[in-house]
Write a protein that binds this DNA or RNA. Structure first.
Lengths: 183, 183
DNA sequence: AGCGCAATCTTGTCATTGGCAAGATTGCGC
DNA sequence: GCGCAATCTTGCCAATGACAAGATTGCGCT
C-alpha cells in the first residue's frame, strides 16, 4: 500500500486522512498539524495542501466521512430506539476522532456539498431510528430528547467528565442511561 | 478600571480573562491567541505568560471560573430537576466560552487544585438538583440521564447541529425536551 | 523617608506552523 | 511517443507560543 515510494505517493489522500485520525486521537482536532501529517506520510510539508487546500479542507473531508460512517452505523442498528442510541454512543467512542470533528463546525466548511449530503444521510438514519416510538407523545420532542441523551452521554464520556463509578464499558453504561427514556 | 495606564497595568489578569472570553466566542477556544489577547489589553506580547504561564494556564483559570459560575447557577435553580436542567442549558448558551473550555480537558490542566475544587462544587450542585426524584428508580442512572440530556441538548445547540424547527429560544426548547424525563 | 526586593511588564529571540508561489517529476490521454 | 495536467517539492513569509534577560514600579521593612 505505502510501498509506492516514487515521486508520486499514489494514495496520499487516504494516507493523510488515516494519519489525521491517529493524530487527532493523540492531540485533538485543534492541535492537528498538517506538517506533522506530512511527516507521518513521508511527504513534503506542502503536499497535504494540494489534496485538501488547507486544514479546514482536510477536516471537512474527515467530517463528511464521519457522518457517512454514522449513517451506516445507525442504519445497521435498525428501528429500535435503544439499539440506535447505543449505536450512536458506540460510534462516538469507537470513532472518537471523527466524532470530535463532526460536531465542531468552526473547524471545517459546514456548507460543503459532500458534507451536507452525508450529514443529511445521518439525520435521516437518526429519524428512522426514533420513528417507531409509542404513539401519543410529541414525535419531534421525543426524537430530540433521544438524540440529546445519546449525544450528551457520548460527549461526557469522551470528555472524561463522568465519575469513575460509571465504569469502563460505554455500551453497557449507555444502555442503562438510555433505557431511562423507554420505560 | 482600565484607566491605569502606567508601566503596570494594574488589573491585567482580569482584563486578559475577559478578553479571552470575547475572543473565544469569536474564534473558539482552540484558535485563541495569547498575542491577540495582549493586543486587546494593550500590553506586550509576553505579558500574559507572567500571569498564566502558558495558554493552558489561562484556559485552566477560565475553566475553573466556569465551573464556579455553573455551580452558582445550578444552586440558584433549586431542587427542581426541570429547573436545574434548564439552568444548565441557559448557562451553556449564556456562557458559551466558559462552557466550551470546561468540557475540553485536553486544552487545560485538569488536575489543577483550584479547578478540581470548582468542578466538585458544580458536581455537588448537580447531584442536589436531581436528589428530589420520584423514588423507585435507580438514582445514579436517573442523575446521569438528566445530566446527559441537558448536556447533549446544550452541546448540540452550541454546535448549531439542531434543525431550524427547534426555534431560537434555547430555554423554551430545552424545557420541552427535558420534560420528556419527568412525565 | 528611603532602601531593597519581588512582582509586573517589555524587548528580543527561536522553533514551529499555515499558507502561498514557483519549480520539478510523473503518469495518462491522445 | 508527445504534451499536458495532476502530483509533489523546495523556498519563502507572517504569525504564534515559549523562553530569556532586562526595565520599571510598588510594597514592606527599618
Amino acid at each position: 500500500m505505502t510501498e509506492t515510494r516514487g515521486y508520486h505517493h499514489g494514495d496520499l489522500r487516504r494516507t493523510l486522512l488515516a494519519a489525521a485520525l491517529d493524530a487527532i486521537e493523540e492531540v485533538g482536532p485543534a492541535a492537528l498539524s498538517l506538517r506533522d501529517l506530512a511527516r507521518r506520510a513521508g511527504v513534503s510539508h506542502a503536499a497535504p495542501a494540494h489534496h485538501f487546500g488547507d486544514k479546514a479542507g482536510l477536516l471537512t473531508a474527515l467530517a463528511a466521512q464521519g457522518f457517512d460512517l454514522l449513517a451506516q452505523a445507525l442504519s445497521a442498528a435498525g428501528d429500535d430506539l435503544l439499539a440506535a442510541g447505543v449505536a450512536y454512543v458506540d460510534f462516538a467512542v469507537g470513532h472518537r476522532a471523527h466524532f470530535e470533528v463532526m460536531f465542531r463546525p468552526e473547524l471545517y466548511r459546514a456548507d460543503d456539498a459532500e458534507l451536507v449530503a452525508a450529514r443529511e444521510r445521518a439525520g435521516a438514519a437518526l429519524r428512522s431510528g426514533v420513528a417507531a416510538l409509542p404513539a401519543g407523545g410529541d414525535a419531534d420532542r421525543d426524537a430530540l430528547a433521544a438524540w440529546s441523551i445519546a449525544h450528551g452521554f457520548a460527549t461526557l464520556w469522551l470528555a472524561n467528565a463522568l465519575p469513575a463509578r460509571v465504569g469502563n464499558n460505554p455500551s453497557k453504561a449507555a444502555r442503562q442511561v438510555l433505557s431511562r427514556l423507554t420505560p
